[in-house]
């Protein structure tokens, strides 16, 4: 593929680092490994093995791979929910050790607070920041408008469809104005049409907001459509296998799905990933 690189060279060339200056690298994943001890079988499961990746500020990264390739584990380590067994992840040069409002997460199952209205859900991170009530309400309302949920401020999650819930969850994640948005198969539980709509929406929002996004998915077209760079991972143990730079301009629009480059890249990726996908099942 077009932009393959050996992670080791980056680690070694750190002091000099001519082409990628450390200033613009926001997330620096250095040789991260994750091993789970399975108590039942007394066997260590290697979920991640020597993963290195540098993510620039404002970049949209898709982590693509079959189930079991450790992409969600990697995201959860970046979020600070879990710690790496080896290696480390730096954010602006500082190691990540716990969750922080500069890195918010959108979950596949939305993880909305069911006892709160949409408005209260979106305000949660602002309340944590200690913003005064009126300001909180204003920011939340404008974000709810951004995700096209205006009018649903006082609804509870159980009164809304899956797509609307995920819109609310996206607004909630954007509310604390994070540097990095982490999305863990956010559209995996949605029907095909809603998924396409939300893909276009997230393409628009991420471009407007200028956030760094790490988007975990097993959908090839979704990964290519959204990302500046698709990082392909392979399973057992989870490794970075390939990288694809996406030359399509931003913001991404629906027509780009029929762009010849897009079509052939998705097809090529599918051809290379097929054997692994089949093995995974």
């Amino acid at each position: 593929m077009n932009a393959q690189f050996a992670p080791a060279t980056f680690a070694a060339a750190e002091p000099a680092a001519p082409q990628a200056s450390t200033a613009e690298v926001q997330i620096d994943i250095r040789n991260v490994g994750k091993v789970y001890d399975s108590k039942a079988t007394h066997q260590a499961v290697v979920a991640l093995d020597g993963v290195s990746l540098r993510i620039k500020k404002g970049e949209f990264i898709s982590l693509l791979g079959p189930s079991g390739c450790g992409k969600s584990t990697l995201l959860s380590i970046i979020a600070g929910f879990q710690s790496a067994s080896s290696g480390q992840i730096l954010q602006n040069g500082r190691p990540i050790s716990k969750p922080d409002a500069s890195r918010t997460v959108v979950f596949q199952d939305y993880a909305l607070f069911g006892w709160m209205t949409v408005q209260q859900n979106v305000e949660f991170g602002l309340k944590a920041k200690g913003l005064p009530k009126a300001e909180r309400a204003d920011i939340a309302r404008s974000l709810i408008k951004t995700v096209h949920l205006a009018g649903f401020e006082d609804k509870y999650p159980h009164q809304m469809s899956g797509g609307m819930k995920q819109r609310a969850a996206i607004a909630r994640a954007l509310a604390p104005d994070p540097d990095i948005l982490l999305m863990d198969e956010p559209f995996g539980a949605l029907d095909a049409q809603t998924r396409v709509l939300l893909q276009e929406e997230i393409a628009r929002i991420s471009t407007e907001a200028g956030k760094t996004v790490i988007f975990v998915t097993h959908g090839i077209d979704e990964a290519v459509f959204l990302a500046d760079r698709v990082v392909v991972m392979s399973p057992r143990p989870g490794r970075v296998r390939d990288e694809v730079l996406v030359p399509l301009p931003r913001p991404r629009t629906a027509e780009m799905r029929s762009d010849p480059w897009f079509v052939s890249t998705v097809k090529d990726l599918w051809e290379t990933l097929k054997p692994e996908w089949q093995k995974g099942d």
């Binding site: 979020a79 979950f107 993880a111 607070f113 949660f124 909630r172």
Partner: peptide, 22 residues
Amino acid sequence: DRNQMNAALCLGAKPWQLFTDV
């Protein structure tokens, strides 16, 4: 729900907010 707790943590919830609001 582990995810809900994690969601609250990554949104910057302090222990007290985590306790009373989640």
